[in-house]
Design a binder for these strands. Structure first.
Lengths: 152, 152
DNA sequence: GTAGCTGCAAAGGCTTTGCATCTGG
DNA sequence: CCAGATGCAAAGCCTTTGCAGCTAC
């Protein structure tokens, strides 16, 4: 069994919660996905496994409260969920606003700088998100030939 | 009239769109709010002005497409909207996961570093979001006396 | 005058909730 | 065995859509 999955089992048992097939299944879907998954996307994925969609909502609420996942913005103002450390490597996102492609960025070396910025507020920092938005090479080319996206 | 509002009017007219009382009203609400506003919050605000809630949705969709606002995560996985440069000063968020307090951080000095990180991907960067999550001093104290938030 | 904007009302999704049933430890 | 988890179904939101009437320019 994967090391991350054992971590999840431990985290659940420590709280007196149960390791169930549904919870493991949702965890594996998140682990297998290169991108954050929205709840509707997860519901879609589990649709033919017999798992109820209410269960998906409850599992994500639980995972969020446990610090297993956290919400991030994906695409046009919708919310997705992804695993966070120690359940997954720390990383950030580079998002194309043209085609919604998402690239994971590892090697974030900004922690020290962020600590400095936040010091005056006496917050205890738990985690941070960075999302960089722009146009991927393909969409830059598309924009160059098109007249550009007029509103509406 | 505020300089930012003139910018909005210019941006609208450049696209052959109209400057309407409703659009100005939504813009002013966003400008007056220290925090990002969710659509339901905006709908609440305009409820007794006679403006229809459908209009709020359409205006936010338009403002997003125009680059006047962008979505950010606020609180527990919900989405809010806020003005972005040149309609507002560039800034980031420090969010308390205990009480959902949001503090604006100005003086972001990370642009250069982000450029370096992203260089290999040949993206054209348009903007970035940074959200730092943690516990405010008050919630740290609360956690110290409480047994801490068990799941569920 | 006319393209564009808004109001209204209905439809369609998404999310939450209560309760009965089932199950992991 | 029993606290905890899930399924089901209904209810309550949130969001989108089509069309008729209104307004900025």
């Amino acid at each position: 069994m994967a090391a991350h999955e054992e971590l999840l089992q431990t985290a659940l048992r420590e709280r007196g919660l149960r390791v169930t097939p549904d919870r493991l299944h949702v965890f594996r879907l998140l682990e297998a996905s290169p991108l954050p998954l929205s709840i509707p996307a997860l519901v879609e994925e589990i649709h033919d496994t017999g798992m109820n969609q209410t269960t998906v909502y409850r599992i994500l609420e639980l995972f969020t409260a446990m610090g297993v996942v956290h919400p991030v913005l994906i695409g046009h103002g919708s919310v997705g969920y992804e695993l966070i450390p120690p359940f997954r490597h720390h990383h950030h996102h580079l998002v194309c606003i043209g085609c919604n492609e998402v690239i994971d960025l590892y090697n974030c070396q900004l922690e020290h700088r962020l600590d400095e910025i936040v010091k005056p507020y006496q917050y205890k920092i738990l985690y941070h998100d960075i999302e960089i938005h722009g146009l991927c090479p393909k969409c830059q080319a598309k924009e160059a030939e098109d007249p550009g996206p007029s509103a509406h």
